[in-house]
Design a protein around this nucleic acid. Structure first.
Lengths: 250, 250
DNA sequence: GTTAATATGTGCGATATCGTACAGAGCCGG
DNA sequence: CCGGCTCTGTACGATATCGCACATATTAAC
């Protein structure tokens, strides 16, 4: 019986051609990613890149006064540490585990060497980065124009898409930090969604009861991001890493 | 007497090694960039990339209901059309000329070929993209946490850094569209800045009177973005494209 | 110089979110 | 079973921004 963990649970790794995957896989290191762990601190050097499989990580910008805002979510569809190959070595963002689970990590130097072959790995990573950029941009728009409730819907759906579950372990306090709003604001929005029968929650455990209903409530931001991920990864050699991701909404 | 226009007015082009610059420069086409022109429409194909020299271009996301928000500003420090080499071919954003001027354009195919050499051009473009990502992320944070007045300061400074002038031609209505706020909100914020003696404006002409004063008012978002640009381009071979940019604030 | 068009200023009620304070509710350990 | 902790619910005034209406000012056009 195989291990319950496999690198190909990460869609980027799964999308690699055989040669590239075989070159990298001996160096992939399975690691637990506990809730709240910071993979990168703002301005710190990147020693590894991370490929989440069963965890979700938030990219956060933290401000001088301590308040913060999430700029993107990365789960089993992606990679953490893009600044490494983009040329920055560091980033001004923090990366914090938002939903505990596992992932694989790879030494920075190895990924860089692979990237510099300018082959399929490079192109896949750049394409992923393009999708991530879309997510960040849409986050900016959503922050500007949409209500807390709409943003909560977006956040729930984005997170669910990156797990294979209809349940999240996440207190309202943490969600508030991610969205950059007050905890009470989340309580209120979540209460509305619960009364509408879309979700159920208690003490840090959120269950989605009616996903189509959530998708009716959510602002367009979610769909724009999802469509862009679909579009960019539809023709990946080795299969479509976003098959599940695409199944629910047109 | 030389032409008043030269590709090296664009800092990215100026930062290219001689061989690369000489290879590209015969294909650079000087073009006027009039106010309001859309270089790219959301979802459209990219036929050229653009290197602004004396113009400023905004990357906008436009929503279904027509309201919009600026994601980033690109001027003589950058390039428009990064989706081309990131692998997307198109982007979900619009690119609109925000301050009329000139720039150079290059056929998409030529840039792609140059990028695929995986040499200095590629690394420079990726590094620029990394800086742009920072700008977008910080925009998201600023939208979430800062007042219209602070955002106006940030926007003015970012725009000024991309021109060689202390004057902008830009109505409050347009600024409001960029920031994704009401025109009246801009009127109010601009009025405050004017009464404080930091700027002067009338009918679409904004003059900065006290730049250090503006830099005292602005939120940290401006400085984070500026520092990141500085950091990423400090050691560019062929000179520092952000010399002027760095001169004022620590 | 009169008119039109555009840009800016101001006022006001509606709304969303904030900041703060505190009350209940579920869970755990002793 | 009880005390303590964490999570969630609720209330209320303060504030920022919105949406709208309309007044004024500046420039352009004929």
């Amino acid at each position: 019986m195989p291990s319950p963990h496999h690198p190909k649970q990460n869609h980027l790794l799964a999308a690699l051609p055989v040669a590239e995957f075989d070159r990298l896989s001996p160096h992939l290191e399975l690691i637990p990613m506990p809730l709240g762990e910071a993979l990168y601190e703002s301005g710190g050097r990147l020693h590894h890149v991370y490929f989440p499989t069963t965890s979700i990580v938030s990219l956060l910008y933290v401000m001088e006064n301590g308040s913060s805002a999430e700029i993107a979510v990365v789960g089993n569809e992606g990679i953490l540490g893009i600044a490494l190959f983009m040329g920055g070595e560091t980033t001004p963002s923090r990366a914090v585990v938002q939903s505990a689970g596992f992932g694989y990590r790879l030494k920075a130097q190895l990924l860089k060497e692979e990237f510099n072959r300018a082959g399929p790995v490079m192109h896949l990573l750049l394409r992923y980065t393009q999708a991530l950029i879309t997510q960040m941009a849409q986050t900016a728009v959503c922050n500007r124009h949409h209500t807390v409730e709409q943003q909560l819907c977006r956040w729930l759906l984005l997170s669910l898409d990156r797990l294979d579950s209809d349940e999240l372990t996440m207190t309202q306090e943490l969600i508030a930090n991610m969205l950059g709003v007050r905890r009470e604001g989340v309580t209120e929005a979540a209460g509305k969604l619960q009364r509408a029968g879309l979700i159920r929650y208690s003490r840090g455990r959120i269950t989605v009861l009616d996903r189509p209903g959530l998708e009716r409530e959510v602002c367009e931001c979610y769909k724009v991001v999802k469509k862009e991920f679909d579009r960019l990864f539809a023709d990946i050699p080795g299969g479509d890493p976003f098959q599940a991701f695409r199944s629910t909404v047109s």
